[in-house]
Write a protein that binds this DNA or RNA. Structure first.
Length: 548
RNA sequence: AGGGGUAUAGCCAAGCGGUAAGGCAUCGGGUUUUGGUCUCGACAUGCGUAGGUUCGAAUCCUGCUACCCCUGCCA
């Protein structure tokens, strides 16, 4: 196994300082998804950072659903998120929380701020509020409702809660500073009226707290020491701190880092949704998508994702990681964990002229040829085999050292064979290749002291099973599909991102393979049994990656 | 009266005043019954830029430039 390289980063430096200064005596983090979509590789980075740091400091981590907007959220997403994080291998024990469970406390917090004169009910319409807010370069104006008395605000807020006012007619706002250069501090909305049933609270509430009024206090309630989030919340930190300080509650520390951008794909809920809804892919679990369920279905091991995230580091620089780097860590894992077999994707028949029709040899081949003392499996060899169409040519050339008339080729783990002829079908496609077997050449790599360069894989025709194999390529042809501002990102879709091979021939040792089992098809790539469409007797494989 | 961030190799990324770690990619050599694996080696006189401080600066100071984020009753 490989050693853990726990590189230093700015977050750990902060934590070390906090521990040393005594600001905190332990580390407790959280991952706070909104149940409004599926998790993708970008979320995996956030999870691995938050949870990984807690583990590293022997601390705890929570899973908390940030479910403050009933318009967007759904139980289905919640379940998907839980499934995906568990798949990654994290266990939050009994610390599964919901921001919606804090609605009563949050309501009390709001009342407290009203009493302190730090919050008020505002009747401005959304349009008016926008005007009053000012612009990036001009200060805003105070709302005409800003100076309502405490008792008036108390009364109004309670009546908002009781459903006496219509949606959008009133909000509760923090009274901070309409001239602040930070727009988030210009009297931000704390509560809005929404007559919408919540997927967990039902109709209990018709006012819902905003993200800003929820997140920090939720962190505080749970005793989160370090609240790690992405750069877009950096501008919210003053507000995060303001609420906590005005309320005088446990002060979590928010630290922001850059989110992950992967080349040749998109990681944005909205864009992923667009791909799904326009039928460009076949669902959130399409193996071409960077969603966790898509990656899982493609055969990417969760450990590879964690290793990858650990390897790319954590900083505040917004960059794009080349998928090649991700692929490297997937292969790094797969080459040690997936057993080897031989499989022919696009079969051509190979007949050995001088091998008896009724003869059959049994080979014991290693499942992990690169490991010492690998377990073995039985593979049969006979007169008629299948080989890969790519490994056969009508005429040879200098760079081609596989099957073509006159060429000697090594059949992996068995005889050397000399190609004598190829035969085509009516359409002109090569149909069958004929070879002479070189006797006693199982252990040899030479013919007349000349090295045989070509080694090809094969499957015995009578000892193989049929399978479907789905090959995936990059979903986008452009490194960053979003960096052309004049074009829609969907214009850069790779039209060849999926190809299906329906009559592949696979050695029958895998006939009993189960969903999600992973294999290396020697000389071809890494594959896994599809978790949805594969059934006993009709196996479907997804290509995870090619060999390099 | 705008504010908040970020700049170290093709892509990531350490470095925190003592003379540029590491990974991916790339390029060479060796091993190998997978054109794979493994292995050995090469790869920034240079840290956005211009000055300054210092015996010494990627690190400290000043000015400049580029890019990202912020004007939801989204998170």
């Amino acid at each position: 196994m490989k050693e853990e390289i726990t590189r230093s980063n700015f977050i750990k430096t902060f934590i070390d300082e906090d521990l040393e200064s005594g600001r905190f005596s332990k580390v407790h983090t959280r991952f706070p998804p909104e149940p409004s979509g599926y998790l993708h590789i970008g979320h995996a980075k956030a999870i691995v950072i938050s949870y990984g740091i807690a583990e590293e400091y022997n601390g705890l981590y929570n899973l908390r659903f940030d479910d403050t907007n009933p318009l967007k959220e759904d139980k289905e997403y919640e379940l998907g998120i839980i499934r995906d994080i568990k798949w990654l291998g994290f266990d939050w024990g009994d610390r599964l929380f919901y921001a919606s469970d804090y609605f009563p406390i949050l309501y009390d917090f709001a009342v407290e701020l009203i009493k302190k004169g730090k919050a008020y009910v505002c009747d401005l319409s959304p349009e008016e509020m926008k005007i009053y807010r000012g612009t990036l370069t001009e200060p805003g104006k105070d709302s005409p409702y800003r100076n309502r008395t405490v008792s008036e605000n108390m009364d109004l807020f309670e009546r908002m809660k009781n459903g006496e006012f219509s949606e959008g007619s009133k909000v509760l706002r923090a009274k901070i500073d309409m001239a602040s250069p930070n727009m988030n501090m210009r009297d931000p909305v704390m509560y809005r009226i929404l007559f919408k049933e919540h997927h967990r609270c039902g109709k209990q509430w018709c006012i819902y707290p905003s993200y800003d009024f929820t997140h920090g206090q939720s962190d505080s309630i749970e005793g989160i020491t370090h609240s790690l989030c992405d750069l877009s919340f950096e501008n919210h930190r003053p507000l995060y701190d303001w609420f906590i300080e005005e309320l005088g509650i446990f002060h979590s520390r928010q630290i922001e880092f850059s989110r992950l951008n992967l080349s040749h794909t998109v990681t944005s809920k909205r864009k992923l949704k667009e791909l799904v809804e326009n039928d460009i892919v076949k669902g959130w679990d399409d193996p071409r998508l960077p969603t966790l369920i898509g990656l899982r279905r493609r055969g990417v091991p969760p450990e590879a994702i964690k290793e990858f995230v650990g390897a790319i580091g954590t900083s505040k620089k917004e960059g794009v990681i080349d998928v090649e780097t991700f692929d490297y860590y997937i292969r790094e894992n797969l080459k040690l964990t997936s057993s080897h077999i031989m499989a022919v994707l696009d079969p051509v028949k190979l007949v050995i002229n001088n091998y008896p029709e009724d003869k059959c040899e049994i080979l014991n081949l290693e499942n992990f040829p690169n490991l010492k003392d690998s377990e073995t499996r039985e593979v049969k060899f006979s007169r008629t085999l299948y080989v890969e169409r790519d490994d056969v040519k009508e005429e040879s050339d200098e760079k081609f050292f596989r099957l073509a008339p006159g060429n000697y080729v090594k059949l992996r783990k068995t005889y050397i064979v000399k190609c004598t002829a190829v035969e085509k079908d009516n359409s002109g496609r090569i149909d069958t290749v004929y070879c002479d077997l070189v006797p006693d050449s199982q252990k040899s790599m030479k013919i007349d002291s000349k090295k045989v360069n070509g080694i090809i894989h094969w499957v015995s025709a009578n000892d193989s099973i049929d399978a479907e194999v789905r090959i995936y390529d990059k979903l986008f042809t452009k490194e960053n599909p979003l960096d052309d501002k004049g074009a829609d990102f969907k214009e850069f879709i790779n039209s060849n991102s999926l190809s299906v091979y329906k009559n592949c021939k696979i050695e029958n040792s895998v006939a009993k393979a189960k969903q999600e089992d992973r294999f290396q098809f020697e000389r071809v790539g890494y594959f896994c049994v599809d978790m949805l469409d594969s059934v006993d007797g009709k196996l479907v494989f997804n290509k995870t990656l090619s060999l390099r």
